[in-house]
């Protein structure tokens, strides 16, 4: 469902994103300590945001840059291993990705431990299709003699994969160019979606028609259905908060609740 410009604006205000007109918004997500702020600084030329996320507002983690006559605002999200387990950091990152509708989400992964980091990437893929994977700490991976088959990874994930060593400034030109391409829509992404067991998929199918009736919903109905099946109360609270849905009045909610 398309939001009216006015609704969209007030929601972004609510979440602390002061996005100017015609500006693309770029979210930086990733596990803790993978180099998100280093990438943020390199892209924006800012130096003040080096420490950890304060965990309260996204205002002081915003910066902007110009590229090819376009303007981008970039938001450095708190580091998280997941978007589903409800620490404060996770809720901030999840709410931003769900309700601020960034034009591109860059998921920064530690190239030295992909197995651990890909969990978050797959979760982000369920929320938004406009994702770029940035494999950072490539210099460390090389030191460990790790060889990463980038074309295969890109093919498996369905999104662009850019290798960087942010501290050395390597790969950032390519990252900027991909951000531009995905933001402007000249490059289409098709992130790999997890297929769950047949009973979960069946339950999702049952819920979808109800979820699709939720008004003013910019979110993927599948993502909402999965959270309903999880019984994720924290997400439902955020959803009703941001969408101003009265949970008890909406018929969609009632039936969804019964179904799970």
């Amino acid at each position: 469902m398309i939001l009216s410009a006015e609704k969209k604006k007030s929601r972004k205000d609510h979440i602390g994103l002061s996005e100017a007109k015609n500006q693309f918004s770029i979210a930086l997500a990733g596990n803790p300590n993978v180099g998100k702020s280093t990438i943020f600084n390199a892209l924006t030329g800012l130096h003040q945001h080096t420490g950890n996320w304060p965990g309260k507002t996204v205002d002081n983690a915003q910066g902007d840059f110009q590229y090819r006559q376009k303007s981008f605002i970039i938001i450095d999200l708190p580091g998280t291993y997941s978007l589903l387990a409800h620490t404060v950091e996770e809720q901030i990152a999840r709410d931003f990705l769900c309700f601020a509708n960034p034009d591109v989400t860059v998921v920064v992964l530690d190239a030295t431990c992909l197995e651990r980091n890909l969990n978050l990437a797959l979760q982000v893929f369920e929320i938004t299709p406009k994702v770029i994977v940035c494999l950072n700490l490539m210099d460390e991976a090389q030191k460990k003699d790790l060889v990463i088959d980038l074309p295969s990874l890109e093919h498996e994930l369905g999104v662009p994969v850019i290798a960087t060593s942010a501290r050395q400034g390597e790969g950032l030109k390519e990252l900027r160019e991909k951000i531009y391409q995905v933001a402007t829509g000249s490059l289409q992404t098709r992130p790999r979606q997890i297929v769950y067991s047949s009973d979960v998929e069946e339950a999702v199918r049952d819920l979808l028609p109800h979820v699709e009736t939720i008004a003013n919903n910019p979110l993927s109905p599948r993502w909402i259905a999965l959270r309903l099946l999880d019984g994720d109360g924290s997400f439902l609270d955020s959803l009703s908060n941001y969408l101003s849905i009265d949970r008890d009045l909406s018929p969609g909610w009632e039936e969804s609740k019964c179904a799970h």
């Binding site: 291993y81 997941s82 589903l84 387990a85 409800h86 197995e115 969990n119 019984g231």
Partner: peptide, 12 residues
Amino acid sequence: SGLLRRRILDMG
């Protein structure tokens, strides 16, 4: 079940 299960899964 619940959040604890989620945490453990997220730890790989």
